[in-house]
Amino acid sequence: MAQNKLLFHLSDIHFGLEDKSALAWVEREIAERRPDAVAITGDLTMRARPPEFAAAEKWIHALSVPVTVEPGNHDLPGYHLPSRYLDPLGRFEAFREVVEKRIELPGLALVPLNTNVPAQPRLNWSKGWVSDRALSDCLRQIDALPEGTMALVTVHHPLRETGTQGTALTRNGEKALAALAQRPVLAVLSGHVHDAFDIMEKTEHGPVRMIGAGTLSQRIRSTPPSFNELTWDGATLHVTVRNLENIDTPDMMIDDVPEDAMPPREAGEPVAPVGRVPRTDPPVH
């Protein structure tokens, strides 16, 4: 029997507006539980400012476990357009070795898929876009895995195209999911919406499981700060949404990816939960 794997799935820490108590709690959990890997699915920073990246670098390098980080839309320079176009990940330099890092464990691998582009032909650049190059690189890495290895694909934006063409969350998300459905992919891990979810997304080639993590920042949406604890026994991937308020996992999960994924923008705006959205069906494991 395969040895159990323990993974922590974190997202949307937003250094600059991080929840310090929640972050200290997660750091203690990592030190005590020693997960096999930690996946951070984007938005490490609030405004991609150097002090925020310095805080993120210090925190990540203090963790003595394997870490992989996906960039999020908040991590790309928003105001200095030359940097955004020419070197969008340049501010990750101090810990570039963990950005989009593939982590291989016996029988299980974390494989990155970048959902950010420097610019796109719509006004809201915060939304996701899977480029052909990013998808090809992800598929190549999955195809190169040892036989029998299952993949967890790490992204920032959920691979969902909802609403009209102008309000779609992630362009080419359906294309990416259809390609991943043809490969040994356990699930796609994402962030961005600041609430946890665990849903099966239909594609023309079969379903793909999408797992979203909540936030560890002050920018909460409908649930308190949290992270996902994933356990894999070689047959079943189980998700527990860990939080300091001891709310059960089903009550921490939203039923679907919201079309409007924006939480309150600033610390001064109301951030208290406005009512958790309970699932109407049990999570799929």
Results as ranks from 00 to 15, higher is better:
Leu10Arg: 05
Ile13Ser: 06
Phe15His: 04
Ser21Met: 06
Ala22Pro: 08
Val26Met: 11
Arg34Glu: 14
Pro35Gly: 09
Pro35His: 02
Pro35Thr: 07
Ile40Trp: 05
Ala48Gly: 00
Lys58Gln: 11
Ile60Glu: 06
Ala62Tyr: 00
Leu63Phe: 04
Val65Phe: 03
Val65Ser: 00
Val65Ala: 11
Thr68Gly: 02
Thr68Cys: 06
His74Ser: 00
Gly78Val: 01
Asp87Tyr: 06
Leu89Ser: 03
Gly90Phe: 01
Phe92Met: 06
Ala94Glu: 12
Phe95Arg: 05
Val98Met: 08
Val98Leu: 04
Val98Asn: 09
Asn116Ile: 08
Ala119Glu: 04
Gln120Gly: 10
Trp125Asp: 13
Ser126Val: 02
Lys127Trp: 12
Lys127His: 13
Asp132Thr: 09
Cys138Trp: 07
Gly148Ala: 10
Gly148His: 11
Met150Val: 08
Ala151Trp: 05
Arg160Trp: 09
Gln165Pro: 00
Gly173Ala: 09
Leu177Trp: 07
Pro184Glu: 10
Ser190Ile: 04
Gly191Cys: 12
His192Pro: 03
Met200Thr: 11
Glu201Phe: 08
Thr203Gly: 14
Val208Phe: 08
Gln218Leu: 12
Arg221Ile: 03
Pro225Arg: 07
Ser226Trp: 03
Ser226Gln: 15
Ala235Lys: 15
Val241Ile: 15
Asn246Ser: 15
Pro258Asp: 07
Pro263Tyr: 00
Glu266Tyr: 12
Gly275Pro: 00
His285Asn: 11
